[in-house]
Amino acid sequence: MDQQAFIQAFFKSLKGFLFNLPLLLSVILLTGLFEVFITPKMLSSLFSGNTFLDTLTGTIVGGASVGQPFVSYLIGGELLDDGMSFYAVTAFILSWVTLGIVQLPYEYRLFGARFTLTRNLLAFIFALLIAITTVQSLVWFK
């Protein structure tokens, strides 16, 4: 291994990390706020019962939420028990892990506006498409 190349790459990565540290800390601090102030009950109250609107709401709420994936399963399970459509719940749990509104400033800083916008737009559209396709396929398999 080229030791000189390693040292150079190490310090380059370290420099990049330190440069982005204030933004990273900001995102983490926002994550903490979100986890404490936005409760699962508050998220559940945003759904109306209309399948189409709820699927859209599910994608947006999931994208704006932060936390471990299993939290989205717990909320999703509760929503299903409350009679929420499977489309909405699928979109919700999918966008929970594929969209990151809180992380947007960090993603934008590292990858630039065009990449960040395109990726998140694609993830948003595909959360809807995959939710519809999955639930439709589920109907066929039953």
């Binding site: 982005n20 540290l21 204030p22 933004l23 990273l24 800390l25 900001s26 995102v27 400033p105 934008y108 800083r109 630039g112 506006a113």
Partner: peptide
């Protein structure tokens, strides 16, 4: 991008 942690 120039905007980053210094503002946020």
């Amino acid at each position: 991008p120039k905007i980053g942690g210094k503002i946020l």
